[in-house]
Design a protein around this nucleic acid. Structure first.
Lengths: 256, 256
DNA sequence: CGCGGAATTGAAAATACTCAAAATTAGTGG
DNA sequence: CCACTAATTTTGAGTATTTTCAATTCCGCG
């Protein structure tokens, strides 16, 4: 199930090379991820405890609900979704995560995972054994501080989604979703106006509390207004100002 | 703005007496709150850093969005609501908090509060200066662990609300809300079947992403089915099993 | 006793959903 | 590389749930 990238039998030659040089210091995400703000010495100490870099292929589950909690996961590259399943079997996607983001923090409270995490594309994560991370906390206050920030930001992220689900109309939700993706890509040095949707329309709808049909209609409508262009999953934002206005609720679009 | 309970000018005599004997060890919430699981020595050390017990009268704001973050607050008694305000001025209540729960964790990430916190009734909180709490973390691993659990539980709490807002119909949301309150009162040693709603119908509706009229209709319908009794804010659950079934989505109620 | 905020109830309207069908895209094997 | 099949997406029409608007009623409080 889990591949060890150092295994010489590994089919992917490129990845072995990659393996050798991966370290927090060498990772392009280190200014966003857990090691943010650490000096070289501390970053190395953090590196020491990272279990391994684990490849997760598209649709593979990184962990599932009720699994015992052992590791946090930092996304090196790729995208994930996390979702809960309620007693009647319906799923609610609670987030889409990208490189530099941390997965598994919701498992600390009960020592078991509270949601499933699935790769939306072939991805790679760093496995961070939580008990070993806890050992570091006592020695590295900077790391602890940053960890608290990350957890707190996860709380505020979710509060923002509550705001979205609790009192925005469909078009506002969808605009907010696009604006959020856009800004996260910008943070990572990618284009804020043009990117690929890594998730299906159905996943977007589920996340936003809408049906797939509604999402499809919203896309069509936004396209017709000239606010964006979309070809399959390739999306280009043409009028970011308008989308921000919609998301903020200061603009609105009465159908057509 | 903030009352110092040790101030001899304080109008409330009873409270000064209270002040003298409050300590984590003496507090009925210490098995639920931050000091959970600490030995006496550690609990005393935690006590040392608690800034003061602060009284917050009904409708008073404990903190507001954008306030600089200085303290976490543990609720000694009373109830609070937290809410966000979006750019167009609408509020979304993100939670109702009761004794033993911690307020302010969403402020750690950006060093400013991310929501407003308002007392739903006359309440009292312990002010916990976060920088001093951080100092304790390095010396009290048990405390740190528990703090992480609390933050993680806040994340899962919010994920549960996302599930509620994203996927559930009105009656399911409302049932889930009641079941949640019920179980939290049970945890605190109060009746799980009979309690007072500390929030208005409007606040319930806002929290659940419904209008006040919908909440009112749901209450009437549940009453008519004989699942509960309600007189103003005094609520009695008559059929907890049914409500749990509704919340879980395994039961349903087609109007009437 | 009367005022005002909160809650309830009813009727009409709107938003988003469901169901259905068609179109497009992705995946698979020859 | 193409053809076939399965999956996803789009679009349309009708429906349902919840909202909005409006009118009462209830209750606390001066």
């Amino acid at each position: 199930m889990q591949m060890n990238m150092a295994n010489p039998d590994d089919v992917s030659h490129a990845l072995n090379i990659n393996e050798l040089k991966t370290s927090c210091a060498a990772c392009s995400m280190h200014q966003l991820c857990l090691p943010m703000g650490l000096n070289d010495v501390d970053m190395n100490r953090l590196d020491q405890i990272i279990g391994r870099r684990r490849r997760v292929v598209r649709d593979e589950r990184l962990y599932r609900m009720e699994d015992p909690f052992k590791n946090l996961f930092a996304i090196r590259f790729g995208h994930f979704k996390t979702y809960q399943i309620n007693p009647s079997g319906e799923q609610q996607i609670t987030g889409f995560q990208m490189a530099g983001e941390l997965l598994g923090m919701d498992a600390i409270g009960a020592d078991r995972h509270h949601c499933d995490a699935v790769a939306l594309e072939d991805s790679e994560v760093c496995e961070i054994p939580f008990p070993r991370l806890e050992e570091l906390f006592s020695q590295m206050p900077t790391l602890l501080r940053h960890f608290h920030r990350i957890m707190s930001q996860e709380i505020t992220r979710e509060q923002n989604i509550m705001l979205l689900l609790g009192n925005m109309r469909a078009e506002q939700r969808f605009a907010a979703f696009l604006v959020n993706l856009s800004s996260r890509y910008a943070t990572r040095g990618y284009s804020s106006s043009s990117f690929q949707l890594r998730m299906s329309r159905e996943e977007i709808g589920n996340y936003l509390g809408l049906t797939i049909e509604s999402v499809s209609r919203l896309l069509s409508r936004f396209k017709k207004h000239g606010w964006l262009q979309v070809d399959k999953r390739e999306l280009t934002i043409l009028d970011p100002h308008m989308l921000k206005g919609l998301a903020a609720g200061t603009e609105n679009c009465d159908s057509m």
